[in-house]
C-alpha cells in the first residue's frame, strides 16, 4: 500500500502543527483579551463584545476564505495557506479564550476578594494565592475543550490548499477507489483513531490537573 501510513502521519503533523501554534497564540492573546474584557469601561466592553460576536457568527470556513483569498484581493498581501490557517484559528481561539477568562474571573465570588484584603494580603498576593488558582480551576476544563474543538476544526483547511490528515485520508480513499471501493471506512477509522490519540491525552491532562488542585486544597 505504498507509504500511506507515513503520509497519514505527516498529514497528522500538519494538523497538530497548525492547532498547537494557534492554541499557543490564542492562550496568550486570549488571556490578555480576557483581562481587557473584565474592564468596567462601556466602550471597551462593547468593542470586545462585537469582536466576540462577529467571530462566533461567522463560520470558520468563511474566515479562511476572507484571510486566504480576501486579504490578497484587497491588500495584495499574500499569506501562505498555513499562515492563513493560523491567523484564522488564532482570531477565533483568542476570542473564545478571552470570553472564558472573563467568565472564570467573574465567577469568583466578591467575598473572596474582600476577605483576602481584610486578612491583610496585598493585591498581588491576593491574585497570586487566592484568585488565580480558583480562576484557573474554573478555566482549565473549558480551555481543553476549546483546544480539542480547534484541533477538530482544522479539518476545514483543505479548502485553502493545505493537505492535513483528513485530506490525506480522502486522497488515499480516492486513489484506491477502483480497486478498493470500501477502503473509506477503514481510512476514516484510522483517522478517527489519530484524532482520538491527540485529543484524549489533552482531556487526561486537564483531569489530572483538576484532581491535583483539589488534593492540594
Amino acid at each position: 500500500m505504498g507509504n500511506n501510513f507515513l503520509r497519514l502521519l505527516s498529514g497528522l503533523w500538519v494538523t497538530v502543527r497548525i492547532s498547537l501554534i494557534s492554541i499557543a497564540f490564542s492562550l496568550v492573546l486570549g488571556t490578555l483579551l480576557g483581562a481587557v474584557m473584565t474592564s468596567k469601561n462601556k466602550v471597551v466592553k462593547v468593542i470586545c463584545r462585537v469582536y466576540l460576536e462577529i467571530v462566533r457568527i461567522m463560520p470558520q470556513l468563511v474566515w479562511l476564505f476572507i484571510v486566504f483569498f480576501g486579504v490578497t484581493r484587497l491588500t495584495g498581501a499574500n499569506f501562505g495557506g498555513e499562515t492563513s490557517a493560523v491567523i484564522v484559528f488564532t482570531i477565533w481561539g483568542a476570542a473564545e479564550m478571552g470570553d472564558l477568562v472573563r467568565g472564570a474571573f467573574q465567577a469568583i465570588p466578591k467575598h473572596q476578594f474582600e476577605s483576602s484584603l481584610s486578612l491583610g494580603l496585598t493585591k498581588p498576593q491576593m491574585y497570586l494565592n487566592i484568585i488565580f488558582p480558583q480562576a484557573l480551576r474554573n478555566l482549565l476544563p473549558n480551555v481543553i475543550n476549546l483546544a480539542t474543538r480547534m484541533i477538530k476544526t482544522t479539518a476545514l483547511v483543505s479548502i485553502i490548499g493545505i493537505t492535513e490528515v483528513l485530506k490525506v485520508g480522502k486522497q488515499i480513499i480516492d486513489a484506491n477507489r477502483f480497486e478498493f471501493p470500501n477502503a473509506a471506512i477503514w481510512v476514516y477509522a484510522a483517522i478517527f483513531f489519530m484524532y482520538f490519540l491527540i485529543c484524549f491525552p489533552l482531556s487526561m491532562i486537564s483531569r489530572a490537573i483538576v484532581k491535583k488542585q483539589q488534593r492540594s486544597e
Binding site: R49, V50, E53, F65
Partner: peptide, 25 residues
C-alpha cells in the same frame, strides 16, 4: 443594543467580503 451593534458589524464584514468577490467593483 450590543446585539444590534454586533449584527451591524457582521453585516459590514460580509459586505466587505462580497465586495472582494466582485473584483472590487
Amino acid at each position: 443594543f450590543t446585539k444590534m451593534i454586533s449584527a451591524v458589524f457582521a453585516a459590514a464584514a460580509m459586505t466587505l467580503t462580497m465586495a472582494g468577490c466582485g473584483n472590487g467593483e
